[in-house]
Amino acid sequence: MSIALRTLDDGAWISVNNSRQVSVSDVWTLSRGVFCDCKPAYVLLEAFLDVRVDGPTVVAEAVGQCLECGVRETITYLPVGRIVDGTFEPVDPETVQSVLEPAGKH
């Protein structure tokens, strides 16, 4: 089953199958070292630049800023959800994410 994935409205949100599923302006918790030196890093997502699937994982490219140290960077591989039986299951932004690169690239 094909999944329609796209960013819309100037990167304000990620649409999955024509439904607004992931919005900017949430604070995502990233483990130490993957974004900046903060432990953990609390990163405000300001815009989604792209979205794609990597196996069952929905992965976004996004611009974010660390709320502690102020580093603003592009995150090229942020898992934002999974496709399970054709349904999108979002990742909770508050759970700590430690993987910001595709499997096999570590």
Binding site: D9, D10, A12, R20, S23, V24, S25, L44, E46
Partner: peptide
């Protein structure tokens, strides 16, 4: 702002 807008943060 966030009252109606998709982009706004606050």
């Amino acid at each position: 702002g966030t009252e109606f807008c998709s982009l706004s943060i606050v």
